[in-house]
Amino acid sequence: MAEVLIVAEHDGATLNASTARCVSCAEEIAGDQVDIAVFADDGQALAAQAAKLAGVRTVLLIERAENAHPVAAVLAPQLAALATNYSHVLGPSTTFGKDLMPRTAALLGVGQLSDIMAVESPYRFKRPIYAGNAIVTVEANTGATLVATVRTASYGQTGSGGAAAIERRETDASIPAHTRFVELRTASDGSRPDLQSATKIVSGGRGVGSGENFALIYDLAEKLGAAVGASRAAVDAGYVANDLQVGQTGKIVAPDLYIAIGISGAIQHLTGIKDAGTIVAINKDEDAPIFDVADIGLVTDLFTAVPELTDALGD
């Protein structure tokens, strides 16, 4: 029987939505045999949030001072120690999970599967390669613990209303002191929806032209209650901070509505938006590759169209 342990992602106060997405994937692997591990220094409230996720059997709470920040070298030995009771250990394919899961797998002496996008059986999965230009079906040996990351854009969040038991756990894992968290610099002020859980995203590219011009993108996003994203070109040009980047090496998003403005549509960007419900493209270059994937395309100058669109959307 498959039993899954999911490592919870959080910021110390709130559980990240990626955790509820991992539960949806885990249920396809192991039904109701799904536990969540919460590593924190003060994690009772976080554990309570995890316990409410539908489909979770038990929440394991591992509290120690070293767990205040998500340092992979600190968490991996603890997660590896807990993993021995499970057939599968899952984390989200966010920067948190990508950092932690391979280290955990190597400590267990096993490989790791990245970016599960579909579960065909407890040991057979689909995952993207070549920036999503190909999908491989992979079969894993049943004899080894399966450590994997879940491509969060492929799964919805499990519901709330669960009432899992919370159990405190201690591990005898030895924790290295060679990796030290210094600080987290966040550009976003938290007033805008998070890119990876937003239902609407307005994204700007190099065509927006400057950081000041990004006000056009923010104004439209404000009107729609949308998150703001950007292409790599816009981030490289310094228009916006790196945490807004959508694409192969940035964030993979799955909103209902994705509005790409002044984005040409490099293949690495398209990889990040393939799961969007409806893609709208506004670009003055009618040959831009973004129009190949757009559900609704508008060939026009963004500097007149975007303010017009913002106005047209009412109050």
């Binding site: 920067t95 948190f96 968290f181 210094v182 600080e183 987290l184 610099r185 966040t186 976003s188 790196n242």
Partner: peptide, 9 residues
């Protein structure tokens, strides 16, 4: 470069 911004270690 992490999802929340920039983390220094």
């Amino acid at each position: 470069e992490v999802d929340a911004g920039l983390e220094v270690v």
